[in-house]
Design a protein around this nucleic acid. Structure first.
Lengths: 204, 204
DNA sequence: ATTAAAATCCCTACTAATGGGGATTTTTTT
DNA sequence: AAAAAAATCCCCATTAGTAGGGATTTTAAT
């Protein structure tokens, strides 16, 4: 029997998954949580084999929750379950130790498949994330890693001066990166760059 | 029999709702769509009594879809179904003619209740939206309607000059509104204001 | 009718960022 | 080893936005 815990802040989705899985006789849902802190309590108590975990959750996000869970119970299989197809989040979840990654616009059939796959010591990555790699790469590799790092700080509303202080580099360097990013992305002005930076996090 | 169409870009949630509702004998799901355009086709074909409609969808958003549906089939009951508790979206959906509004962190029990309520010519608004009205008002009424209008343009990355041209007012007026908003919201700088403006749209 | 709030506009000094250069060092690729 | 890319820094003129005033008109609220 595969025991599963679900962490997800949309109760409607939890109810739906529970209803869908109810008659699967190899999978049993041992509990659900609406935020990261609840998830930790639940996992400590029930020690499920698989955790289906939203990345974006109140109180404690999926990435931090995953790290804590795998520190305490290293044999737990974590599947990241999210609506945003961002490379950043995928990378961070994988770095935290997740064994799978699926998007919410996948069907529940895929969810079952992912649960069964990770419970048999394999990894499961949503096809929708890997297939358009050509397209993803072209739109990703435009920015260098340093540029992406700076872009994240821009997304927080920081000024070039503040970013320079945080990264221990000169303001002029930050300004240069800004200019290069604006040029590479075909934007115009600080406003559009900041908007791009913030919205990138919520891509649908 | 209450016929229902679902429009929602997360297939997982659709599968869950279908599974949950399957054994309710007064409600029947006649189809689902993953975006606004598909929804219009579906509604024209099946003419459901109730449409459960995500606000944020690819191709055509819930607000536009609702307007079109109610123009063609005015007796259809539309329930807005969204993860974001934004007053703006609620207002726009109500203006478009929606009879109900529920959040995705409601349980599916609430979804059923909402479907039954609107199908009997009543309206249904999620308690979670109305209860914290004191709190919501205090955090909403901070900005005037003109300020919110300008904030929306700021969220698009526009400069004060561009906003002034779009609204046929002076740049100095836009700058004044900017300053007032920054002061009222306790922010510092254009960056934080823009970040606030963009993130407000994706509040969880 | 009076008051309060909202919306409009202006001035000045200052800081932030752009767009146009140019340049050096480190890292990676070929 | 040579070439390319990434990261670093600087200058300058110009535009964008802040923080601090002040001021008028329109639009609600009492």
């Amino acid at each position: 029997m595969i025991t599963v815990a679900i962490a997800e802040d949309h109760q409607a989705l939890i109810d739906g998954i529970r209803s869908y899985i109810k008659y699967e006789d190899d999978i049993s849902i041992v509990g659900h949580a609406n935020n990261g802190e609840e998830l930790l309590k639940l996992v400590r108590l029930k020690q499920p084999k698989v955790v289906l975990c939203d990345i974006r959750m109140p109180k404690l996000d999926g990435i931090e929750a995953t790290k804590t869970i795998l520190k305490e119970l290293p044999y737990t299989k974590v599947i990241a379950f999210t609506m945003f197809d961002q490379e950043e989040a995928v990378q961070q979840m994988l770095a935290a130790g997740a064994q799978g990654y699926i998007l919410k616009n996948s069907s529940l059939e895929v969810v079952l498949e992912a649960i069964r796959t990770v419970s048999s010591e394999k990894t499961y990555y949503d096809k929708k994330i890997h297939q358009p790699s050509a397209e993803k790469n072209s739109s990703k590799s435009v920015l260098s890693s340093r540029e992406r790092e700076i872009l994240q700080l821009i997304a927080k509303g920081r000024t070039s001066h503040q970013i320079a202080d945080e990264l221990f580099i000169g303001k002029s360097t930050v300004d240069t990166h800004r200019k290069n990013m604006i040029r590479k992305l075909g934007l115009s002005g600080a406003g559009e760059l900041l908007r791009y930076a913030v919205e990138k996090k919520y891509k649908f």
